[in-house]
């Protein structure tokens, strides 16, 4: 029931502070945080999306600007406040509505924008931490993915191996631990 309290603690490269608060709250509805189980917010998904939009996804900047307006319009028209200022259950109901619209009305812009943000939220949650999200590899810990491994032994490929027993590695770990030994 707690209102969003997003305050940037790192540089933003594309979003302004209000945009970032909106996307942070929106992503947190797609992959929510729980006690002892981090979600998109703790993973830093908003930083992943912000950096991607400043670089690889630069062509999507106009789409995000338009989409942020659409979310703002929706939140204000339904609840009278910006999305990031709404209660959790209010945000949840808006996202549920967008999810339904995205399926029943494929041409509806707000619904399609929801799908794009959802995709990028998943990318930021499960992509390598090098991209600015998946901090402390919370996404990989959640599902039991060991991350960027050089390879797996025959023993690890046997049935009954608990995936969460394999120490998680990132691309950065590979560069520092394995890459240095190669040359």
């Amino acid at each position: 029931m707690v209102k969003s309290t997003f305050v940037p603690t790192e540089a933003l490269l594309f979003f302004n502070r209000a945009d970032a608060a909106t996307i942070d709250a929106f992503a947190a509805q797609i992959i929510p945080s729980e006690e002892g189980s981090p979600g998109a917010r703790e993973a830093g998904v908003v930083y992943y999306i912000d950096r991607a939009l400043a670089g690889f996804m630069r062509d999507l900047q106009p789409l995000y600007r338009r989409g942020l307006e659409a979310i703002s319009d929706l939140a204000v028209s339904v609840f009278g406040k910006e999305f990031s200022m709404l209660y959790d259950f209010e945000q949840r109901s808006l996202v549920a509505g967008l999810d339904a619209r995205s399926q029943s009305q494929p041409e509806d812009f707000a619904g399609q924008f929801y799908r794009v943000v959802r995709e990028h939220t998943v990318q930021g949650f499960f992509g390598d931490p090098a991209y600015g999200g998946n901090r402390d590899v919370v996404g990989w810990k959640l599902v039991g993915f060991p991350g960027a491994q050089w390879g797996y032994s025959r023993e690890q490929m046997q049935p009954g191996v608990d995936a969460r027993s394999i120490p998680i590695l990132t691309i950065g770990d590979l560069y520092s631990r394995i890459g240095a030994n190669r040359t």
């Binding site: 992959i31 929510p32 959802r118």
Partner: peptide
Amino acid sequence: KKFGLEFK
């Protein structure tokens, strides 16, 4: 569902 706790 692909959002919320059900998804996670």
